[in-house]
Amino acid sequence: MTEELLSCQGLSKQFGHKTALAGVDLSLGRGRIVGLLGPNGSGKTTLIKLANGLLTPSRGEILINGEAPGPASKAVVSYLPDANYLPSWMRVRDLVNMFEDFYADFSADRAVEMLSTLEISGGERLKHLSKGTKEKVQLVLAMCRQAQLYLLDEPIGGVDPAARDYILRTILQNYSPEATVLISTHLISDIEPVLDEAIFIQNGKILLHRPVDDIREHEGKSVDEYFREVFKC
């Protein structure tokens, strides 16, 4: 197993004339919770989609455990997209079965237990669930895997404060200690308490990648405050 869980070298992504990522160099180790922080349109989602093999790099490369995204990396990466992506005709229990079928590291028992705690019926079709409930189902499925890398794209963006607390607690209680969790968000004050490292990204470029304690110590302010200073409009 290589030391670097995720590494980017000169990673760039163009969409026509628009540059979403401009020569990103990044390295993530294991066993930490990392915040990918930046304003809307900064390239957070693009970076995460590249790591999942859902986009093709324009230049450079992105590697998971030293390999380009493929079946091997997908087996150890748990992804929570920032959208409803599950087939709406499927019942909740069909999805649990599907995740159990395809992912060796998925715990169906834990998923069923969590869904039961949330009072989400296994027989319900996704299309009959509210947006917030759908997001909770997606979160449960993602976090019931014992993955090496969790890529959570705006997991708390569209939900109420109480649900945000639940989601963050779920993340903390369910990820495997040797794994790394990358949380992309612009709601920094909510996730700051759980972060080990912070990456600031703007206009497709990494501005900084530092331990959160380091930021607090040297800048003398919280990550949220420092973010507002760095990204002041």
């Binding site: 093999g53 859902l54 079946p71 091997a72 997908k74 992804y79 959208a83 992506y85 599950l86």
Partner: peptide, 17 residues
């Protein structure tokens, strides 16, 4: 729809070729 639409986020992240 299933591979290139929204559901593609699920299908193309499954550990299959």
């Amino acid at each position: 729809q299933n591979l290139l639409g929204g559901e593609g986020y699920l299908m193309n992240t499954l550990p299959v070729h």
